[in-house]
């Protein structure tokens, strides 16, 4: 190996593509996590151990009926809206339209807040207790972890909007591109949860 001279300067595109790969790899871990949840769900549903997937009525409590699937789909709809808003903002950044960027980012942020409040509400008002069988366990698992994802989304989209507001993305906008990757994953993971929970 020989050592030769070579000037040292890092272009934003280089840094951007590096960051993008890093985020995608972190998402690989997160995807493995989400797929394991889906595995847990279908495993327990398939086994229906002791007929306790959805326990029958006993003297103490009525039959456990699965939550109507709509909350899962509603959250998914809200985050999809967030993704679209973010994408609208990103297009603004690409066409050097800062106003569009700011507007899109703000709406995306608001969507993430609405989604997390809604998700919290679903958990808090769920019509069962933790020990109501395996379906319910899975419901809480999906809902709580979606809540954690949404908390991250709130943080990220708030930062994204704030930085857009401050004009940081005038010269290069690879941060905004990467935040979109996150939003896409947020939609997909909500979708997984909604799909699983509406197929009891």
């Amino acid at each position: 190996m020989s050592v030769e001279t070579h000037a040292h300067h890092e272009h934003p595109d280089v840094v951007g593509s590096r960051n993008r790969l890093g985020v995608i790899l972190l998402l690989v871990a997160d995807i493995a996590f989400a797929l394991s949840m889906v595995f847990v769900y279908f495993y327990l549903r398939g086994q229906n151990v002791n007929n306790m997937w959805l326990p029958a009525a006993t003297e103490e409590h009525a039959v456990v009926t699965p939550l109507s699937a709509s909350p899962g789909w509603t959250v998914t709809a809200i985050v999809t809206f967030g993704l679209l808003a973010h994408f609208y903002g990103l297009k603004g950044a690409r066409s050097k339209n800062q106003t569009q960027l700011k507007l899109g980012s703000l709406v995306a942020f608001v969507a993430s807040v609405v989604a997390i409040v809604y998700q919290f509400n679903t958990i808090a008002t769920a019509p069962f207790t933790f020990s109501d069988g395996a379906y319910v366990s899975c419901f809480y698992m999906f809902a709580i972890l979606n809540f954690v994802h949404l908390a991250l989304t709130v943080f990220i989209s708030l930062g994204n909007w704030n930085r857009a507001r401050l004009g940081i993305y005038v010269s290069d906008h690879w941060h905004v591109d990467i935040v979109r990757v996150w939003w896409v994953w947020m939609v997909v993971s909500s979708l997984l949860g909604a799909f699983a929970l509406s197929n009891p």
Binding site: V40, Y43, L44, Q47, N48, V49, N50, N51, M52, W53, P55, F130, S131, G133, A134, Y135, V136, S137, Y140, M141
Partner: peptide, 21 residues
Amino acid sequence: IMSAMDRALDTSFYNTAGGGS
């Protein structure tokens, strides 16, 4: 995480009596 939920929240991922495995 599921272990923790079983212990602290009384879910039944691994508890056969509650439909776990």
